[in-house]
Design a binder for these strands. Structure first.
Length: 826
RNA sequence: GCGGGUGUGGUGGAAUGGCAGACACAACAGACUUAAAAUCUGUCGGUCUCACGGCCGUGCCGGUUCGAGUCCGGCCACCCGCACCA
């Protein structure tokens, strides 16, 4: 074995051998259990950052570990390759987005390969490849056929910087998720996917996701935002119109003192027509609608409204109440109109107080009765119904049900479940995305492009600085076509799809990535999916993870997959931090993975990242920590080198009973390490503690060396072979290299994961802590497995214990075998 | 406001209710060396003590328990998500 560890030489060597031999190529094999491990595929921005390295290192440990445990492992990689930066680069640098993207992919793929990741590169996909987006379009048409893709005119989120619309999920605090500029509302006709049809299943099936972090499930639950209530209408007699309202507090309906419409509500104009209020209301509506999302919806925005001059009738009591328009009512939620109950709703209280509207108490707390005059805010707790006609005297929770019943029997309303979730706006006015495969015909309307004509390819020659319309709109060759139904001249849709569509199904494509007849073969897909372990950043807690769950459910309904959920287990890794902040260009605290790999090698980089912190927590980058990881690998190399000659020719077996104390201790350390590493990796993903126990084993080997007069070749062979196999998932190159230099057969990555011998871990004697009243007062060494009774006896006999107990009464003794004795005295 | 999370040495972090601080980083000391680097070994929470040893210590206050970093209740601080969703 070589004396020196030179990662620069061994790493590229093994990377080439693994690639040339197809070491990580995977096929369906029904004789083995399958395991699908997946890291979120990256956007090809140009170079890997440390977050990527962390993500892939975690996934690679899992993949290599499960492979050694006998699973048929699918571990693919690809590219989320459509998106804005490519287009911005095109505008700025006059490079075509395709060229920019493909060269970034080549660079990042090289960087990944230099990390020694065990991907099956034969399965690589890129969403911008026509053979991929062909199926993205095919799936869009599947949604279209199933009535789940539709076009509507709506006030949508518009980012001026990106020149495109955004889905609700992509607006963060009123700003664009990508460029952070302010999002405004714009009235446009756009394509939507009906994710709201699946709201209930998306919510319910969160219960199936026991392998997901609670935090992510909660975030999705909040986002979906289910609420139960009732919808009913207020009549507007003067117009013969109805105003439907949605409420979760139908029990407070007798407390209604006004009705409010959202400024966008179509009835507003009818209500004010010809009234003296008309001009002022119009001006108010105009002003509110021009506000940005954030200025409009922040909680601290003051409530503002105007009386329309019209009145509506409360169906419960026949009372006429004024109709207002106000900024705090959302048009998109519920019915776009709400009933105002100032006494029992905080927002209505504030509004009514500001405009001098009546407040009427209908839920009372008899013990300490409320009065409007003495209340300093709305009461939204439980109580007894008052001022509510036939419902008086009921507790308000019961009244909720009875009043919903009443609405239904009277035929003026019904129970209703409402969601906060909105349909997914998927049109994008951009070039670098999958074209929406729709053709507009004057006679036939929106017609699907026939599936055999897919893909609708992106034209090459377009201008990218088109402004507020898609660059495709300027490509005459692209737009003009014939209607597939009637053959008349027609126009293509010029918007492309949100890139989150492309990433909502890539994990299915990996199971059959070169299929030219279908998005995937159902049998292959069903063999592999769902993904057993998905790994990625928390930033996709809603976005990508919600969309993918939606896609999976639609595909299940269509018979294309047999799973309800795409990702069985989810690991959300923490950020990589330096000097207390996320690594970023603007902070100037970036450490380049490529430079670290050049300087120390991939094994060191991986080991440091896995050792420095458990995967879910943020990881503080430390240059000295990296040095430490490199030092450890060198130390491991040297101790193995020290024993190499003994190991090479050593017999495969030995008699464990004949070992001396020093040898026995090494054997104990080895088997304890195997157990610890196995548990840490398999059950808990605690790679940091797994690595620390491998370090302890190396320390134990040093201790053995220092204490041993002669060496025991067979024991050392067992120790080194197991050590290398434990190390292999974390630092694959060095493990493989030493394996080969010690003349072991085959690749280490084809070896079985080591098993521990429970007998070897047992010790003859154990140290027992003796406590008196919970404080450690003595320690004694006793044979292991000594019974509680024996232990108690021995402990009480100790001289020191007797001194301390002298003159006191022993009340109780707790003796835990192999652990401690606690003597309670008075 | 609602929901979730985190809080342990100089630092990253470790502890199925059972010796708090494993394993590292940094620091200090020793060995090797002409010397340095590298390497190997050792010390390393605070405090009192020449020492033996004692006392204190896991954000704060209380509780359960023979025993609490860990479980329960109440606070505080920070982070994340949602937030006029009726």
């Amino acid at each position: 074995m070589n004396e020196k560890y030179v990662p620069r030489e061994i790493e590229p060597k093994w990377q080439k051998i693994w690639a040339d031999s197809g070491a990580f190529h995977t096929e369906v094999d029904r004789t083995k259990p399958e395991y699908y491990v997946l890291e979120m595929f990256p956007y090809p921005s140009g170079a890997l950052h440390m977050g990527h390295v962390r993500n892939y290192s975690i996934g690679d440990v899992v993949a290599r570990f499960q492979k050694m445990r006998g699973y048929n492992v699918l571990h693919p990689m690809g590219w989320d390759a459509f998106g804005m930066p490519a287009e911005n680069a095109a505008i700025k640098n006059k490079v075509h987005p395709a060229e920019w993207t493909w060269s970034n992919i080549a660079n990042m793929r090289r960087q990944q390969q230099e990390l020694g990741l065990s991907y099956d590169w034969d399965r690589e996909v890129a969403t911008c490849h026509p053979e991929y987006y062909r199926w993205t379009q095919w799936l869009f048409l599947l949604f279209f056929e199933r009535g789940l893709a539709y076009k509507k005119k709506a006030a949508v989120n518009w980012c001026d910087e990106c020149n495109t619309v955004l889905a609700n999920e992509q607006v963060i605090d009123g700003n664009c998720w990508r460029c952070n500029s302010v999002v405004v509302k714009k009235e446009l006709e756009q394509w939507f996917l009906k994710i709201t049809d699946y709201a209930d299943r998306l919510l319910k099936d969160l219960d199936l996701l026991g392998g997901w972090p609670e935090r992510v499930r909660t975030m999705q639950e909040n986002w979906i935002g289910r609420s139960e209530g009732a919808e009913f209408s207020f009549d507007v007699p003067e117009l013969g119109e109805k105003i439907p309202v949605y409420t979760t507090r139908q029990d407070t309906s007798f407390g209604v003192t006004y009705v409010v419409l959202a400024p966008e509500h179509p009835l507003v104009e009818k209500l004010i027509e010809g009234k003296s209020e008309a001009a002022a209301v119009r001006a108010f509506v105009e002003r509110v609608r021009n506000l940005s999302e954030i200025n409009r919806t922040a909680t601290d925005v003051e409530k503002e409204g105007m009386f329309t001059g019209a009145y509506a009738v409360n169906p419960f009591n026949g009372e006429q109440v004024p109709i207002w328009v106000a900024n705090y009512v959302l048009f998109e939620y519920g019915t776009g109109a709400v009933m105002g109950v100032p006494a029992h709703d905080e927002r209505d209280w504030a509004f009514a107080t500001k405009y001098g509207l009546e407040k009427r108490l209908v839920v009372q707390t008899p013990a300490t009765p409320l009065t409007i005059a003495t209340m300093d805010g709305a009461y939204d707790g439980t109580g007894v119904m008052v001022n509510s006609g036939q419902f008086d005297g009921l507790d308000n929770e019961t009244a909720k049900g009875k009043m919903a019943d009443w609405l239904e029997t009277q035929g003026v309303g019904r129970r209703r479940v409402t969601y906060r979730l909105r349909d997914w706006l998927i049109s994008r006015q951009r070039y670098w995305g999958a074209p929406i495969p729709i053709i507009y015909c004057d006679d036939c309307g929106a017609v699907a492009v026939p599936k055999e004509e897919l893909p609708v390819r992106l034209p090459e020659n377009v201008r990218f600085d088109a402004g507020s319309v898609s660059p495709l709109a300027s490509a005459g060759d692209f737009i003009n076509c014939q209607c597939p139904k009637c053959g008349k001249p027609a126009r293509r849709e010029t918007d492309t799809m949100d890139t989150f569509i492309c990433s909502s199904w890539y994990y299915f494509r990996y199971t059959d990535p070169r299929n030219a007849k279908a998005p995937w073969d159902v049998n292959k897909c069903n063999y592999w999916t769902p993904v057993d372990q998905y790994i990625g950043g928390i930033e996709h807690a809603i976005l990508h993870l919600l969309y993918s769950r939606f896609f999976t459910k639609v595909l299940k309904d269509a018979g294309l997959v047999d799973t309800d959920e795409p990702f069985k287990n989810l690991l959300t890794q923490g950020m990589v931090i330096k000097d207390g902040a996320k690594m970023s260009k603007s902070k100037g605290n970036i450490v380049s993975p490529e430079e670290i790999v050049k300087k120390y090698g991939a094994d060191t980089a991986r080991l440091f990242i896995l050792f420095a912190s458990p995967p879910e927590r943020d990881l503080e980058w430390s240059d000295q920590g990296v040095e430490g990881a490199a030092r450890f690998l060198g130390r491991l190399w040297r101790i193995v080198h020290h024993f190499a000659d003994a190991v090479v020719g050593a017999p495969a077996t030995y008699d464990a009973a004949s070992l001396d104390a020093n040898e026995k201790e090494l054997r104990r350390a080895l088997h304890a390490t195997i157990r610890k590493v196995t548990d840490d990796v398999a059950d808990r993903f605690n790679f940091n503690t797994a690595i620390s126990s491998i370090m302890e084993l190396v320390n134990a080997m040093h201790a053995y060396r220092d204490a041993a007069a002669t060496v025991h070749p067979a024991l050392l062979r067992e120790t080194v072979e197991a050590l290398l196999r434990l190390l292999a998932p974390f630092a694959p190159h060095i493990a493989e290299e030493i394996w080969q230099q010690l003349e072991r057969s085959g690749s280490i990555h084809q070896q079985a994961w080591p098993k521990w011998d429970a007998e070897a871990i047992k010790t003859d004697s154990v140290e027992i802590v003796v406590q008196i009243n919970g404080k450690v007062r003595d320690k004694l060494t006793v044979p292991s497995e000594l019974s509680s009774a024996e232990l108690e006896k021995v402990a009480l006999q100790q001289e020191k214990v007797q001194q301390l107990v002298e003159g006191k009464t022993v009340v109780k003794v707790i003796a835990v075998p192999n652990k401690l004795v606690n003597i309670v005295v008075k």
